[in-house]
């Protein structure tokens, strides 16, 4: 018995006659529905986590790798000369699209969050910052450092990789963890449905025996069980996914200074991703119940 999408459709449409041969079961049905719902709810969050950290990693590595900063620390009378020298070097460096010294106002704005607006920043010996924007090919940071060391002794090149790498690494790790969680959630759902299906098959041993005796084929018997569990998982997962989506939508939206946590959620077409959860749950239930039914039936003649 192989998996076949057409068969799955036929299963959902159903055969009311076949459905009646297995007695209705109230309690286990509700439990299956509940577990599928909870798992789908959790899957929505794991999915949100994966997609959000994926976005974050992409943004960080993209924005940060496009720019670098050159810091010039020198006695105040030499700063202007060294800045001019550094800009000359940068202008002739392959891979640098543009380089620009930050104005005093821009530098003050950068420092304001730390020192407050009233601090007389002008009187402090602040290094001059030069913003470097790379072109698509990028430049060779090592070569640039050597040239700067020779011509501009007070220059320190910060290409951001030092603190970018761990952040991007953490975000991608988080993304992997999210996908792993989704995998585990579906595996746990399969395990629970298998247990529930086995319980149902055991409870209906007499029904199965009678059906075999009167000439029912395995597929007919299996279908009666598989259909139920598939529909329950589908319904439960649908409810759970809807609840999860509502919960994610109600999270505070991402803000400019929001950092990571408030960014948890879906963006644009990513909202469509959770819709995959209910059908996937149905497929998992279908395969799990079918395997359980086959194992049970093989034990009978």
């Amino acid at each position: 018995m192989k998996f076949d999408p057409a068969q799955l459709l036929h299963l959902v449409v159903g055969d009311p006659q076949a459905d009646r041969v297995v007695p209705p079961s109230g309690f286990t049905a509700k439990l299956t529905l509940f577990s599928a719902g909870v798992m789908a709810f959790l899957a929505v969050f794991a999915l949100a986590l994966s997609l959000a950290s994926g976005r974050l990693a992409a943004r960080w590595s993209d924005e940060l790798s496009r720019s670098a900063t050159l810091r010039i620390s020198a006695p105040s009378d030499q700063i202007a000369a060294q800045t001019a020298a550094a800009l000359r070097v940068l202008d002739t460096t392959a891979g640098v699209a543009s380089a620009r010294g930050l104005t005093a106002e821009e530098q003050r704005a950068l420092l304001e969050p730390w020192f407050g607006p009233d601090m007389p920043v002008d009187t402090l010996p602040i290094p001059q910052l030069i913003e470097i924007i790379e072109d698509d090919n990028g430049y060779d940071p090592q070569g640039l450092r050597h040239r700067l060391a020779a011509e501009v002794p007070g220059a320190v090149l910060d290409d951001h990789t030092r603190w970018r790498r761990p952040l991007v690494g953490a975000a991608s790790r988080l993304k992997t963890l999210g996908w792993l969680s989704i995998g585990l959630i579906f595996a746990a759902m399969a395990a629970m449905i298998t247990l529930a299906a086995n319980a149902a098959l055991a409870a209906n041993a007499q029904v199965i025996q009678v059906l075999r005796l009167v000439g029912a084929r395995d597929i007919y018997i299996a279908r009666a069980f598989v259909r139920r569990f598939t529909l329950r998982a589908l319904t439960g997962a649908f409810i759970g996914t809807t609840a999860g989506l509502v919960a994610v939508a109600l999270l505070p939206s991402a803000q400019e200074a929001g950092g990571f946590l408030t960014g948890l959620g879906f963006a644009g077409v990513h909202w469509l991703w959770p819709l995959v959860i209910p059908p996937l749950a149905a497929v998992v239930a279908f395969v799990a119940t079918r395997a359980a039914a086959q194992t049970t039936l093989k034990g009978l003649r």
């Binding site: 075999r212 005796l213 000439g215 029912a216 084929r217 395995d218 597929i219 039936l297 003649r301």
Partner: peptide
């Protein structure tokens, strides 16, 4: 096969 048995039982 199991299906053959089922058909024979009919």
């Amino acid at each position: 096969s199991r299906d053959d048995i089922a058909l024979a039982r009919r």
